[in-house]
Amino acid sequence: MEARNIKLEEIIRDENLVYTKTSLMTDKPLSFCPGCGHGVAHRVIMEVVDEMGIQADTIGVAPVGCSVLAYEFMNIDMQQASHGRAPAVATGIKRCWPDKYVFTYQGDGDLAAIGTAETIHACNRGENMAIFFVNNGIYGMTGGQMAPTTLPGMRSSTTPYGRDVALMGNPLKITELVAMLPGTCFVARHTVHTPLAVRKFKKAVRMAFENQKLNKGLSFIEIVSNCNSGWKMTPVQANKWMEENMLPYFPPGDIKVNGEMVSKTAKSE
């Protein structure tokens, strides 16, 4: 095979570049654990902002939780919100800048426990913004406590014998819940653990920003992700565990597109 004679220097040239980290991610090393899905989710959102050329018109809201420092990594104007209140903060921004693109980036504890009211009401008002919701079934930053999305029987530092739904309630499918509200125009669930999943997620992110341009209402994208540190697994094991346990309960796919419910059960594609 003649290809063996091709030297790397012939390939590694600017004109042959097919993928590199977007300049809308800063050069600061990410504060996330190795293999954490937050990094991919951050980067994909910034790739879309980059490709749409809307850096100067985009304002992000960072939550409390593992992604509290999102503003250190996303090279756009951002505001850090108190725990759970990102949709209210984003509402304030969007109402003052109706022509700008506004998004929140939140985890499951932030969005689906302490911030449930703000989430539901921002969705119900149909605020013209995007909510990116990373669900890893655990409170990562505080050390792996039970989250509203912790699976039945799943162990966490506050459910060391597994989540007993009789005592602690059921995991909250808030994404299906907000899909019921007339204010949401686009609701979908994605993952970022395989190349195909990341590419699908990116298309959804693009749609969430395009919807804002058209004043269509609120776009809500859940990203089911791993928390390998919290789950006490390697990143590769955690992704496998996620596929086998999280995804049956939180199946990926579109739930609502252009204001129409496309999946009542949100079954996997």
Partner: peptide
């Protein structure tokens, strides 16, 4: 809620 209202103020004041 009042909590949401003050956080809307916080977001809007940031602009």
């Amino acid at each position: 809620s009042e909590i949401a209202a003050i956080n809307m103020v916080y977001g809007a004041a940031g602009t």
